[in-house]
């Protein structure tokens, strides 16, 4: 019994304490400013246990803004690989989701999903803080789904 209580608490905690790492792939900084705006007293995401931890090795969520180009795609992949499972990825803004107006440029790979799997797309140019918070909450749902799938496949 106590073991399952602890396990349940850990599963609950995964949704109560999403730590973010934010990576700017080459954004115009519009979306970055909005990400930081989430930390301000007006939005105060720490209410939900969200911390902008700035270190992939500690993070559960990767927030990516801007278009991916040939230079930083390896960096993006590296950061993603350094995050311990379970983890989710959010692509923010028009550029992050699809490459935006730069998608045809010679140096651009495209959206984040060309390099790493993306769980939640948050559109906007720039994204609104409310949309980012909404995206994080949606991502938590994805995280729960992923855990459920993982435990289901483990049972089989």
């Amino acid at each position: 019994m106590p073991v399952s209580v602890i396990k349940d608490f850990i599963e609950k905690s995964r949704l109560k304490s999403p730590w973010l790492v934010h990576f700017d792939c080459g954004s115009c900084n519009g979306c970055d400013i909005e990400v930081l705006a989430c930390l301000t007293p007006l939005y105060d995401v720490e209410r939900f246990g969200i911390l902008n931890i700035g270190n992939p090795k500690h993070a559960d969520m990767l927030l990516v803004t801007g278009t991916v180009n040939h230079r930083n795609k390896k960096v993006l992949k590296n950061l993603y690989d350094q995050m311990p499972h379970p983890k989710v990825v959010l692509a923010l803004g028009a550029c992050g989701t699809s490459g935006g107006v730069f998608r045809e440029a010679y140096n651009v790979v495209g959206g984040v999903d060309k390099v790493i799997p993306v769980d939640v797309y948050v559109p906007g140019c720039a994204v609104k803080p409310e949309a980012i918070i909404d995206g994080v909450v949606t991502a938590l749902g994805r995280l729960a789904e992923k855990r459920a799938e993982a435990s289901a496949s483990a049972k089989e």
Binding site: F23, P56, K57, K74, V75, D81, Q82
Partner: peptide, 11 residues
Amino acid sequence: RMTRPYLCGAP
């Protein structure tokens, strides 16, 4: 799983 030292993701 072994990860590399954190160098801001530099390859």
